[in-house]
């Protein structure tokens, strides 16, 4: 990306949302010396695998959690099925709580 043409630097900032901090924390734990489930290089490769189109559509932490999830599935740490079921559970829990 270094050296490519791009527009002016957009200086507005947003505060980190709690879910974004959660992604950040998950990543740090997974790459931490204590666990070493994923390396930073794998995370980056996973982000590059998303392809240029998706890269620009997703926000920063959307790219991260996509990459983390893909790598965890690739490594067999979690399966697609259990992730799908769990995501449904999370949604159901939210609806119950009226959110």
């Amino acid at each position: 990306m270094g050296g490519l043409e791009a527009g002016p630097v957009e200086q507005s900032e947003h505060d980190y949302a709690p879910w974004e901090k959660r992604v950040d924390a998950i990543m740090r734990l997974l790459t931490g010396k204590q666990y070493e489930v994923i390396t930073v290089d794998e995370l980056r490769r996973g982000i590059e695998d998303l392809g240029p189109g998706v890269y620009d559509e997703l926000s920063y932490y959307e790219r991260w959690i996509s990459s983390i999830t893909n790598i965890l599935i690739e490594k067999g740490v979690i399966s697609v099925d259990e992730l799908g079921r769990r995501m449904e559970d999370v949604c159901a829990r939210r609806e119950e709580a009226g959110i």
Partner: peptide
């Protein structure tokens, strides 16, 4: 509640919560 956002719940927020929960259940951390 730390995970409730002002905006609508996106698939990525749901994925984040699900992945975090699964990793905890599996004892990764």
């Amino acid at each position: 509640q730390p995970d409730i956002e002002d905006g609508p719940l996106t698939d990525y927020m749901v994925m984040t919560e699900a992945v975090g929960d699964l990793l905890i259940e599996k004892g990764v951390f």
